[in-house]
Protein backbone atom coordinates (compact mmCIF):
# COMPACT_ATOMS: atom_id res chain seq x y z
CA UNK A 1 0.00 0.00 0.00
CA UNK A 2 2.76 2.39 1.00
CA UNK A 3 4.76 1.42 -2.13
CA UNK A 4 1.82 2.26 -4.38
CA UNK A 5 1.11 5.59 -2.68
CA UNK A 6 4.76 6.59 -2.86
CA UNK A 7 5.01 5.73 -6.55
CA UNK A 8 1.84 7.69 -7.35
CA UNK A 9 3.00 10.71 -5.35
CA UNK A 10 6.40 10.74 -6.97
CA UNK A 11 4.82 10.52 -10.44
CA UNK A 12 2.97 13.76 -9.71
CA UNK A 13 6.30 15.56 -9.55
CA UNK A 14 7.40 14.09 -12.87
CA UNK A 15 10.65 12.87 -11.46
CA UNK A 16 12.61 9.82 -12.46
CA UNK A 17 10.96 6.62 -11.33
CA UNK A 18 12.60 5.58 -8.05
CA UNK A 19 14.26 2.21 -7.74
CA UNK A 20 13.15 -0.42 -5.26
CA UNK A 21 16.06 0.47 -3.00
CA UNK A 22 15.00 4.12 -2.86
CA UNK A 23 11.41 3.16 -2.19
CA UNK A 24 12.50 0.88 0.62
CA UNK A 25 14.63 3.66 2.11
CA UNK A 26 11.75 6.14 1.93
CA UNK A 27 9.45 3.54 3.47
CA UNK A 28 11.84 3.02 6.38
CA UNK A 29 12.04 6.76 7.00
CA UNK A 30 8.24 7.03 6.98
CA UNK A 31 7.87 4.04 9.30
CA UNK A 32 10.53 5.35 11.65
CA UNK A 33 8.81 8.71 11.92
CA UNK A 34 5.52 6.96 12.50
CA UNK A 35 6.93 4.94 15.42
CA UNK A 36 6.15 7.43 18.20
CA UNK A 37 2.45 6.88 17.76
CA UNK A 38 2.74 3.13 17.26
CA UNK A 39 3.98 1.59 20.49
CA UNK A 40 3.28 -2.13 20.16
CA UNK A 41 0.73 -3.75 22.42
CA UNK A 42 2.27 -6.12 24.91
CA UNK A 43 0.03 -8.78 26.38
CA UNK A 44 -0.09 -9.57 30.09
CA UNK A 45 1.11 -13.08 29.23
CA UNK A 46 4.29 -11.67 27.71
CA UNK A 47 4.91 -9.44 30.71
CA UNK A 48 4.49 -12.35 33.10
CA UNK A 49 6.65 -14.68 31.02
CA UNK A 50 9.40 -12.03 30.89
CA UNK A 51 9.45 -11.97 34.67
CA UNK A 52 9.33 -15.72 35.31
CA UNK A 53 12.95 -16.05 34.17
CA UNK A 54 14.03 -13.54 36.81
CA UNK A 55 12.64 -15.61 39.68
CA UNK A 56 15.37 -17.37 41.60
CA UNK A 57 15.53 -21.18 41.42
CA UNK A 58 15.50 -21.22 45.22
CA UNK A 59 11.92 -20.02 45.18
CA UNK A 60 10.73 -22.95 43.05
CA UNK A 61 12.80 -25.38 45.09
CA UNK A 62 11.42 -24.11 48.40
CA UNK A 63 7.85 -24.37 47.12
CA UNK A 64 8.48 -27.96 46.03
CA UNK A 65 9.93 -28.78 49.44
CA UNK A 66 6.88 -27.22 51.06
CA UNK A 67 4.57 -29.55 49.13
CA UNK A 68 6.64 -32.62 50.07
CA UNK A 69 6.92 -31.62 53.72
CA UNK A 70 3.19 -31.03 54.22
CA UNK A 71 2.18 -34.14 52.28
CA UNK A 72 4.68 -36.28 54.21
CA UNK A 73 3.40 -34.95 57.53
CA UNK A 74 -0.15 -35.80 56.47
CA UNK A 75 0.91 -39.44 56.91
CA UNK A 76 2.28 -38.85 60.33
CA UNK A 77 -0.29 -36.67 62.03
CA UNK A 78 -4.03 -36.85 62.43
CA UNK A 79 -6.52 -35.11 60.17
CA UNK A 80 -7.16 -32.03 62.26
CA UNK A 81 -3.48 -31.41 62.78
CA UNK A 82 -2.82 -31.52 59.03
CA UNK A 83 -5.22 -28.62 58.56
CA UNK A 84 -3.70 -26.68 61.43
CA UNK A 85 -0.20 -27.46 60.27
CA UNK A 86 -1.07 -26.02 56.89
CA UNK A 87 -2.20 -22.79 58.61
CA UNK A 88 1.11 -22.53 60.39
CA UNK A 89 3.22 -23.40 57.34
CA UNK A 90 1.66 -21.12 54.69
CA UNK A 91 3.41 -17.97 56.00
CA UNK A 92 6.63 -19.68 54.94
CA UNK A 93 5.49 -19.33 51.33
CA UNK A 94 5.14 -15.57 51.79
CA UNK A 95 8.58 -15.43 53.37
CA UNK A 96 10.04 -17.30 50.38
CA UNK A 97 8.49 -14.68 48.08
CA UNK A 98 10.14 -11.76 49.88
CA UNK A 99 13.58 -11.99 48.20
CA UNK A 100 11.92 -12.58 44.81
CA UNK A 101 9.75 -9.48 45.05
CA UNK A 102 12.43 -7.37 46.71
CA UNK A 103 14.87 -8.16 43.88
CA UNK A 104 12.82 -5.72 41.79
CA UNK A 105 13.16 -2.92 44.33
CA UNK A 106 16.59 -1.84 43.16
CA UNK A 107 17.07 1.69 41.90
CA UNK A 108 19.98 0.85 39.59
CA UNK A 109 17.95 -1.86 37.88
CA UNK A 110 14.82 0.28 37.84
CA UNK A 111 16.75 3.01 36.08
CA UNK A 112 17.44 0.66 33.20
CA UNK A 113 14.09 -1.13 33.14
CA UNK A 114 12.18 2.11 33.67
CA UNK A 115 12.94 3.32 30.16
CA UNK A 116 11.59 0.19 28.50
CA UNK A 117 8.21 -0.16 26.91
CA UNK A 118 6.80 -2.14 29.82
CA UNK A 119 6.41 0.17 32.82
CA UNK A 120 8.38 -0.74 35.97
CA UNK A 121 5.12 -0.80 37.93
CA UNK A 122 3.75 -3.41 35.51
CA UNK A 123 6.94 -5.44 35.89
CA UNK A 124 6.65 -5.25 39.68
CA UNK A 125 2.98 -6.24 39.60
CA UNK A 126 3.82 -9.18 37.34
CA UNK A 127 6.47 -10.35 39.81
CA UNK A 128 4.01 -10.18 42.72
CA UNK A 129 1.36 -11.91 40.63
CA UNK A 130 3.77 -14.75 39.81
CA UNK A 131 4.65 -15.27 43.47
CA UNK A 132 1.07 -14.96 44.71
CA UNK A 133 -0.43 -17.26 42.07
CA UNK A 134 2.32 -19.82 42.37
CA UNK A 135 1.91 -19.92 46.17
CA UNK A 136 -1.83 -20.44 45.77
CA UNK A 137 -1.20 -23.28 43.34
CA UNK A 138 1.24 -24.81 45.83
CA UNK A 139 -1.36 -24.59 48.61
CA UNK A 140 -4.01 -26.22 46.39
CA UNK A 141 -1.66 -29.01 45.26
CA UNK A 142 -0.63 -29.63 48.86
CA UNK A 143 -4.24 -29.84 49.93
CA UNK A 144 -5.17 -32.19 47.11
CA UNK A 145 -2.36 -34.58 47.99
CA UNK A 146 -3.02 -34.30 51.72
CA UNK A 147 -6.70 -35.02 51.24
CA UNK A 148 -5.82 -38.25 49.46
CA UNK A 149 -3.65 -39.35 52.36
CA UNK A 150 -5.80 -38.26 55.27
CA UNK A 151 -9.47 -37.53 55.56
CA UNK A 152 -9.31 -33.79 56.02
CA UNK A 153 -12.14 -31.42 55.18
CA UNK A 154 -10.57 -29.99 52.05
CA UNK A 155 -12.75 -26.87 51.81
CA UNK A 156 -12.21 -25.90 55.45
CA UNK A 157 -8.50 -26.61 55.13
CA UNK A 158 -8.28 -24.52 51.98
CA UNK A 159 -10.07 -21.59 53.57
CA UNK A 160 -7.94 -21.73 56.73
CA UNK A 161 -4.80 -21.98 54.61
CA UNK A 162 -5.91 -18.97 52.58
CA UNK A 163 -6.60 -16.91 55.70
CA UNK A 164 -3.12 -17.62 56.96
CA UNK A 165 -1.51 -17.01 53.57
CA UNK A 166 -3.29 -13.71 52.90
CA UNK A 167 -2.52 -12.50 56.43
CA UNK A 168 1.18 -13.25 56.03
CA UNK A 169 1.22 -11.70 52.52
CA UNK A 170 -0.34 -8.56 53.98
CA UNK A 171 2.31 -8.51 56.72
CA UNK A 172 5.16 -9.04 54.25
CA UNK A 173 3.94 -6.29 51.93
CA UNK A 174 3.37 -3.95 54.87
CA UNK A 175 6.80 -4.72 56.29
CA UNK A 176 8.40 -4.06 52.88
CA UNK A 177 7.03 -0.52 53.04
CA UNK A 178 8.52 0.05 56.50
CA UNK A 179 11.73 -1.97 56.60
CA UNK A 180 14.57 -1.94 54.11
CA UNK A 181 16.15 -5.37 54.45
CA UNK A 182 14.93 -8.80 53.44
CA UNK A 183 15.75 -10.13 56.89
CA UNK A 184 13.59 -7.56 58.70
CA UNK A 185 10.68 -8.11 56.34
CA UNK A 186 10.95 -11.89 56.58
CA UNK A 187 11.18 -11.68 60.36
CA UNK A 188 7.78 -10.00 60.56
CA UNK A 189 6.18 -12.88 58.70
CA UNK A 190 8.25 -15.43 60.62
CA UNK A 191 6.99 -13.91 63.85
CA UNK A 192 3.47 -14.32 62.55
CA UNK A 193 4.23 -17.97 61.68
CA UNK A 194 5.47 -18.55 65.23
CA UNK A 195 2.32 -16.98 66.70
CA UNK A 196 0.15 -19.20 64.48
CA UNK A 197 2.21 -22.25 65.44
CA UNK A 198 1.80 -21.46 69.15
CA UNK A 199 -1.91 -20.92 68.61
CA UNK A 200 -2.22 -24.24 66.84
CA UNK A 201 -0.26 -26.09 69.50
CA UNK A 202 -2.69 -24.97 72.19
CA UNK A 203 -5.43 -27.55 71.98
CA UNK A 204 -8.33 -25.52 73.29
CA UNK A 205 -7.54 -22.65 70.86
CA UNK A 206 -7.06 -24.88 67.85
CA UNK A 207 -10.31 -26.67 68.59
CA UNK A 208 -12.08 -23.33 68.72
CA UNK A 209 -10.50 -22.41 65.40
CA UNK A 210 -11.80 -25.57 63.79
CA UNK A 211 -15.27 -24.89 65.15
CA UNK A 212 -15.61 -21.45 63.54
CA UNK A 213 -18.45 -21.47 61.05
CA UNK A 214 -17.63 -21.43 57.36
CA UNK A 215 -19.28 -18.08 56.42
CA UNK A 216 -17.08 -16.33 59.01
CA UNK A 217 -13.99 -17.98 57.61
CA UNK A 218 -14.90 -16.98 54.05
CA UNK A 219 -15.52 -13.44 55.27
CA UNK A 220 -12.06 -13.47 56.83
CA UNK A 221 -10.55 -14.53 53.48
CA UNK A 222 -12.37 -11.69 51.70
CA UNK A 223 -11.26 -9.10 54.28
CA UNK A 224 -7.69 -10.34 54.20
CA UNK A 225 -7.64 -10.30 50.39
CA UNK A 226 -8.94 -6.72 50.39
CA UNK A 227 -6.20 -5.76 52.83
CA UNK A 228 -3.56 -7.41 50.63
CA UNK A 229 -4.90 -5.52 47.61
CA UNK A 230 -4.83 -2.22 49.53
CA UNK A 231 -1.25 -2.86 50.59
CA UNK A 232 -0.34 -3.82 47.01
CA UNK A 233 -1.80 -0.50 45.78
CA UNK A 234 0.33 1.42 48.28
CA UNK A 235 3.42 -0.58 47.26
CA UNK A 236 2.81 0.16 43.56
CA UNK A 237 2.24 3.85 44.31
CA UNK A 238 5.61 3.98 46.03
CA UNK A 239 7.32 2.04 43.26
CA UNK A 240 9.10 4.74 41.32
CA UNK A 241 12.79 5.19 40.64
CA UNK A 242 12.98 8.39 42.68
CA UNK A 243 11.19 6.99 45.73
CA UNK A 244 13.09 3.71 45.72
CA UNK A 245 16.45 5.46 45.26
CA UNK A 246 15.70 7.85 48.11
CA UNK A 247 14.47 5.13 50.42
CA UNK A 248 17.13 2.52 49.82
CA UNK A 249 19.95 5.05 49.56
CA UNK A 250 21.45 3.79 46.30
CA UNK A 251 23.63 6.92 46.23
CA UNK A 252 21.68 8.14 43.23
CA UNK A 253 21.48 11.79 44.23
Amino acid sequence: MIDKQLKETLLLYQVEKPGSEQIEKAKQIVLKNERPIKAPYISAKRVVSSQIQTVSNWFWLFSLMFVFAVVYLSFKINNQLTTLFLCGATPLLSIASVPVVLSNIDASRMELEGTCLIKPQTVFSAKMLICGCFDLIVIIITLLFSSQLSEINIVRSAVLGLISFTASSFLCLGASLIFKTQVAISLVSALYAVVVACFVSMNFLSEKLLEIKMPFLVLAVVINSAMVYAMYSVAIKNYSFEKVAKRFGNKIF
Binding site: K38, A39, S49, S50, A107, E111, L112, E113, L117
Partner: peptide, 30 residues
Protein backbone atom coordinates in the same frame (compact mmCIF):
# COMPACT_ATOMS: atom_id res chain seq x y z
CA UNK B 1 9.30 2.73 22.43
CA UNK B 2 11.81 4.90 20.58
CA UNK B 3 14.14 5.46 23.51
CA UNK B 4 17.49 3.86 24.24
CA UNK B 5 19.14 4.62 27.55
CA UNK B 6 22.40 3.70 29.18
CA UNK B 7 22.55 4.87 32.79
CA UNK B 8 25.80 5.76 34.50
CA UNK B 9 25.57 2.72 36.79
CA UNK B 10 23.08 0.10 35.86
CA UNK B 11 22.00 -2.97 37.74
CA UNK B 12 20.98 -6.30 36.29
CA UNK B 13 20.32 -9.84 37.42
CA UNK B 14 23.82 -11.18 37.98
CA UNK B 15 22.75 -14.77 37.36
CA UNK B 16 21.74 -13.88 33.82
CA UNK B 17 23.99 -14.79 30.94
CA UNK B 18 24.81 -11.92 28.56
CA UNK B 19 22.54 -13.34 25.86
CA UNK B 20 19.69 -13.95 28.32
CA UNK B 21 20.00 -10.42 29.64
CA UNK B 22 19.64 -8.96 26.16
CA UNK B 23 16.69 -11.24 25.43
CA UNK B 24 15.13 -10.11 28.70
CA UNK B 25 15.64 -6.47 27.74
CA UNK B 26 14.11 -7.25 24.33
CA UNK B 27 11.04 -8.62 26.11
CA UNK B 28 10.75 -5.44 28.19
CA UNK B 29 11.22 -3.34 25.07
CA UNK B 30 8.48 -5.23 23.26
Amino acid sequence: NILGYLPQNFGCYKDFKAKDFLMYMCALKG
